[in-house]
Design a protein around this nucleic acid. Sequence first.
DNA 1: TGAAAATTTTTGTTGCATCAAATAACATCC
DNA 2: GGATGTTATTTGATGCAACAAAAATTTTCA
Lengths: 221, 221
Amino acid sequence: MSALAPIDRDKSLGAHVYDRLKRALMSGAFQPGQKLTVRSVAEDLQVSVTPAREGLNRLIDQGALEMPSAKTILVPVLTVAALKEVATIRRSLEGTAAELATANFGPSDIANLLSLQAELESAMNSGDYRRVLDRNESFHFGVYEKCGMPRLVGLIEAQWLRVGPSLNMLYPEFAVSRRGVSNHMRVLEGLQKRDAQAVRAAFEHDIDDGYATLSAALGKT
Amino acid sequence: MSALAPIDRDKSLGAHVYDRLKRALMSGAFQPGQKLTVRSVAEDLQVSVTPAREGLNRLIDQGALEMPSAKTILVPVLTVAALKEVATIRRSLEGTAAELATANFGPSDIANLLSLQAELESAMNSGDYRRVLDRNESFHFGVYEKCGMPRLVGLIEAQWLRVGPSLNMLYPEFAVSRRGVSNHMRVLEGLQKRDAQAVRAAFEHDIDDGYATLSAALGKT
DNA sequence: TGAAAATTTTTGTTGCATCAAATAACATCC
DNA sequence: GGATGTTATTTGATGCAACAAAAATTTTCA
């Protein structure tokens, strides 16, 4: 667990632990199946066990970590069934967020997305898969956040957190899939035409493609 | 907070606290706006502050409780904006769960729902609003749980928990609305015909009706 | 009388020792 | 050798005292 560094203390330590673990999870610092312990996290982050346990429990609550038995905390290994369920939830939630966000998009917002997409493609061309994943995330949430429903966006984040670790582990196979590019293009077109249904459809398609790719990669494990 | 009684100790105390608070919230034991404290919950449930705090924080995490400042925990007062957001999320999630559940329904499952609905209507006729709410909840989750996606059902539960306290406060005005009956009827018809889209539509309609009623009642506060 | 300041009380957070249970390591036996 | 029983270690949970900050209360003063 030395993939973590000490944190600075201003607000709640438990919240800090949660944030740091979340980022570590999304950036692929932990392997699926890896065991975490309250004490090791506490030591790495230089806090006592109480806030460490709080951060871990929050992640367990939202399904970003697993506790198969009373004394073991694991980074989840994504099963095909779990992936399918997350994909189903994501389709509902992200489709809705995207649909609602469309009306709130102005030219400058679209310009921001365009530059994000450009960065994504350049990262893809240079084989920088980690940056591909990062820009992809920014693109998606750049749209969702404009729906003006923070609780909805929070739920979506929780779903991403469940797939994050496995996604990172498989990212060369995943990020190399170029179908995502055309889906994002259709998002941008829909946004420009203010066609909410088209935007929703593009995101749903993107999620379906990602699900298929990940599902196939998972089967080979 | 004397609306709570001591709990028995077998599994995790924090989990128990969470369960008890959840039930208390859904059954209307707390008023929206009411202040909760770690110590009072700990005392009522006869546990130390650590598991009490854990249970409270879990509820805060999923939005069933609020923490407007660093030292105050509140039962949320539902704003119109929050209600609208919850209704949007519920439409997505519950619509999807209902749609997916349809294929898994057999005759005995439908019979169970029918008797639940009969109990609901008899409770409504006798003016037992609390029982109306209870049977309504059982009806909804009786369908959703058959979709075979526990994570999805968990997300739905979290949404109900957000509306629960305010729902209970207003339940005479809310439960008296008879539009729910015809929506449930359409659910049952759709289930019998195995028409997933009809079932989804019926639930979405039910949620919309509930939103409208609650929204109106909320405005009068 | 009423607003501002000072004081007391309340409150969530944190660190840590302790506990019981689960896990791991090891030895034993057939 | 492999299964089984035994011991040692690790681990999450819990209770509790101490702390700093926020709230509530009281006092002060114009």
